[in-house]
């Protein structure tokens, strides 16, 4: 007597039981990695460079300088002589402070040299010039 095989019906539906697990996993990833920008800063066009490296966010203090030579630190417009005091305070809080320049490419270099003089006086010697990747 021939043996009758039981037909197995293949399921054609995509299992979606783990859909919420995936969603929650992605949600947690984005919640953890999201950094809400604290400062607005100034509108600048960054210069381009090839040899750029990552700047550790935790130790950086951003100095914005736009093309009209306006300086902004922590969303406050400052004058050159004030930079010394501000950076000195920041250096006290973080010994490994990096002054991160977010300067417009059309800014005159003399202005930057004056700011760097203030940084040297405040003993903030590690600087970084923010740039976009490109040549």
């Amino acid at each position: 007597m021939a043996k009758i095989q039981k037909k197995t019906k293949a399921s054609t539906e995509i299992p979606n039981a783990s859909m919420s697990d995936i969603a929650f996993l992605l949600l947690i990833f984005f919640m953890v990695s999201t950094v809400f920008v604290k400062e607005k800063g100034l509108d600048v066009v960054l210069p381009k460079a090839m040899e750029i490296e990552k700047i550790p966010r935790s130790h950086s203090a951003t100095i914005y300088v736009d093309r009209s030579n306006t300086i902004s630190i922590d969303d406050l417009a400052v004058e050159i002589p004030q930079i010394y005091g501000i950076m000195l305070k920041k250096k006290e809080l973080d010994f490994n402070l990096i002054a991160c320049f977010r300067t417009d490419k059309k800014t005159t270099y003399g202005y930057m040299a004056d700011i760097m003089k203030q940084l040297r006086d405040a003993d903030v010697l590690r600087v970084s010039f923010e740039a976009k990747l490109g040549s």
């Binding site: 984005f30 920008v37 990552k54 951003t62 040297r120 010697l125 970084s128």
Partner: peptide, 17 residues
């Protein structure tokens, strides 16, 4: 809303005052 704000730039160490 996520913006991966990775800072990149040219590093340099200034001489002391």
């Amino acid at each position: 809303t996520t913006k991966f704000d990775i800072k990149k730039g040219l590093g340099l160490v200034l001489p002391p005052a």
